[in-house]
Amino acid sequence: MGKFWIKFAAIFVAVFAVDQIIKFVFLNGFRWDGEFFSLILTFNKGVAFSMFAFLDEWLKILQLVLIIALFIYLVYQKELLHEHWVAFALLLGAGSSNLLDRFIHSGVVDYVFWHKWFEFAVFNFADVMINLAVAIIFIQILIEYKRKKAK
């Protein structure tokens, strides 16, 4: 295994482990109620904002297929993988952690609930990492586009 795959795996495992450790704390009874947000245990049977919850057990199969397909695609699209490897390691680590929840707890373990001024969907660390990964890819593409345009 080359240095690239070791670094990729380290980020993947770190995101996966941190997410599962935080979830373990909530699964064992931790709760905190604050003025702006609360830290409460919930189980999301769907994806963001509980969309597609009606798919029930099929959702975890679909998510598994999507994660495996993305990984296989990236292995064959080496240039894309190498351009955005940190983001894809974050994305796959977080997505795999949420997927594990679906198999073990029948739903994703969520715990951050924003409720000041408006109520937002309950989310977790993995969700933040997925959004960060998408933002990193977007920023990298934008920087590359501007660099090419400046030539």
Rank of each mutant, 00 (worst) to 15 (best):
L100I: 12
L64I: 03
A121I: 11
E79Y: 01
E57C: 05
G29Y: 08
W117P: 01
V15I: 15
M129C: 13
M51P: 00
L80V: 15
D110G: 03
A150Q: 11
A53M: 09
V134L: 11
I141W: 13
I137C: 05
G2K: 11
L99V: 03
W58D: 14
A69S: 06
L99P: 00
L62M: 08
K151C: 03
F43S: 14
Q20T: 12
A10E: 05
D33K: 15
F125L: 05
I21W: 07
W32G: 07
K78T: 08
I11H: 02
G2Q: 09
I11Q: 04
I130R: 04
S106K: 14
F49W: 15
K60L: 08
L142M: 07
L92C: 06
F120P: 04
L62R: 07
T42A: 14
V134H: 03
A133I: 11
N98G: 02
G95R: 01
F30P: 00
H82Q: 15
F120C: 09
V108E: 06
V15R: 04
I40G: 00
R102Q: 09
A94S: 05
G93I: 11
K3Y: 06
K116Q: 01
V15N: 10
K45N: 11
I143A: 01
L80G: 06
I21M: 03
V18M: 08
H84Q: 13
V122A: 12
N131D: 14
S106T: 09
W32Y: 15
A10D: 01
V15G: 14
L91F: 13
F12C: 00
A121W: 13
I22D: 04
A69H: 00
L27T: 13
V25P: 03
W58H: 14
A135V: 13
A133P: 05
R147E: 08
M129I: 13
L59D: 07
F71W: 01
L74C: 02
K3Q: 10
S106Y: 13
K148G: 00
V112D: 08
I67G: 00
Q140F: 01
L41W: 01
F71E: 06
V15F: 06
F26C: 06
S50W: 01
K148T: 05
A150S: 10
D101M: 02
A135D: 10
F125P: 04
F4I: 09
L27D: 09
G93A: 06
W5P: 01
N124M: 09
L27W: 05
F123Y: 04
G46W: 02
V25L: 12
N124L: 08
F113E: 15
F12W: 05
Q140D: 06
R102T: 07
L41I: 01
D33N: 15
W117R: 08
H84N: 15
H105R: 06
H82V: 10
L62V: 11
Y145I: 13
F4D: 03
S38H: 01
L39T: 04
A9I: 10
G95W: 00
I136R: 03
N98E: 03
K151F: 04
L132S: 10
F36E: 06
M1I: 09
W32Q: 10
F113D: 12
L80F: 07
F113G: 10
K3R: 07
F71L: 11
D110W: 04
W114R: 02
F103M: 04
L59K: 13
N28F: 07
A14M: 12
K3M: 03
L100F: 02
F26E: 08
I104W: 06
A14H: 07
A53R: 15
F138C: 07
A89W: 00
N131V: 10
F54Q: 11
V134P: 01
A133T: 12
